[in-house]
Amino acid sequence: MESQGKSAVTFREGVEACLPTVLGYLGIGLAAGVVGKGVGLSIFSILMMSVFIYAGSAQFIICGMIAIQAPVASIVFTAFLVNLRHFLMSMSVAPHFRSANLLESIGIGTLLTDESYGVLTTVLAKKQPVTVPWMNGLNIMAYLTWIAATVLGGLIGEYIPSPERFGLDFALIAMFIGLFVLQVDLPIRKRTRQTIIVLISVCVSLYLLMSVLSPELSVLIATLIGCLVGVVTNHDN
């Protein structure tokens, strides 16, 4: 099947595909920087956190745990669990980059985020080819935007002593809601019954697991259950 719309081949096309994510990252990054500054982090600390952690959900959680003076070991372990979903995302995209060498694969996996994964899966759902340069353009543009936005947010945060009063701590949740809607729109129009079954299985399993496991493990296991249901229902079709 021939691809429709813009191709996903060159680095520049990857950058262009990232533009909607850039707009989202500007808002979320500013909020993350403001929240970081609000819990006492320096601009340099905010910069280093964005460079080396590069995970909006983890960075918001880390700031929250710093605010309650949680032990360092707890912060590290919690951030690890929160980001464990990236392992699943990397596994799912790996087959589409079989020609990539080891360094290229590490680069793609390291900079892969929920947002870039969402853009990638949308492109793949449209049967468009993807290449390593395109993925690098998508990932690197998002990475640089996030760093710049969080640092700028930290600078602005010096003048906002209570970011929660402005609802900035809700910014990440709003971003995920928007991302979820965009990712579900295409499959629910093409495979309505299958998509609804998968969503129901994830929601029900997540609800049941939350009563006995931590939220992070519950999300991970519910995701695996959703994947299993998706594979089975797809095979039936």
Rank of each mutant, 00 (worst) to 15 (best):
S214G: 15
S50D: 13
Q59V: 04
G33A: 03
K127S: 14
I75Y: 14
L220C: 06
Y54S: 03
E164F: 02
K126H: 10
V35G: 05
Y54Q: 00
V15T: 12
G153Q: 08
L81Q: 11
A149Y: 04
S74P: 06
M175R: 02
Q4P: 01
A79D: 06
P95N: 08
V204F: 13
P133Q: 04
P161W: 03
E164R: 15
R189G: 10
A55L: 07
Q128C: 08
A100H: 07
P133D: 07
G178E: 03
I200R: 12
L152Q: 03
Q59D: 02
G24P: 02
T121M: 15
L172Q: 05
R85S: 09
G27V: 01
H96T: 04
N237K: 12
I147S: 05
L199S: 13
I196L: 13
R191P: 00
F77Y: 13
D185S: 12
L199C: 15
T233L: 03
D114V: 01
M135E: 09
E164H: 05
L111S: 04
V22T: 08
N234Q: 13
K126I: 00
H86Q: 13
Y207R: 14
L19F: 07
M210G: 07
L168N: 05
L168I: 08
I140R: 09
N101K: 11
V119E: 04
R193F: 12
G14A: 02
Q194F: 06
L120N: 01
Y207N: 12
M1E: 06
C63N: 13
L47E: 10
S74K: 09
I225Q: 04
L124T: 11
E16N: 09
G230T: 11
S162A: 14
L26W: 05
S74T: 15
V72L: 15
V181I: 15
A67C: 07
G167Y: 04
F176H: 08
S214P: 07
P129K: 10
L155Y: 13
P95I: 04
F87G: 15
V184Y: 08
V82C: 01
L138H: 05
V219D: 04
S218D: 11
I177T: 09
I75V: 14
Y207S: 15
P215C: 07
L111H: 03
K6W: 05
R165S: 15
K126P: 01
V123I: 12
A149P: 06
Y117D: 05
M1C: 05
T223M: 06
T150S: 14
I173H: 10
A171W: 01
A55K: 01
I106K: 01
V212F: 14
L224E: 05
A58C: 11
C203P: 00
S7T: 11
I197A: 06
V184D: 03
A58Y: 10
A222H: 04
F87Q: 08
I53D: 06
S50V: 02
A67L: 10
V132H: 02
A100P: 07
S211V: 06
L186F: 04
S7E: 14
L26Y: 00
V204A: 11
G33D: 04
S57G: 10
N136Y: 14
F170D: 03
V229W: 05
I61D: 03
V204W: 09
G27T: 01
Y159Q: 14
E2D: 10
S74F: 12
P95R: 12
L228C: 09
P71Q: 14
N237W: 03
A31T: 01
G27D: 00
M1N: 14
L217P: 05
I177M: 11
L138Q: 00
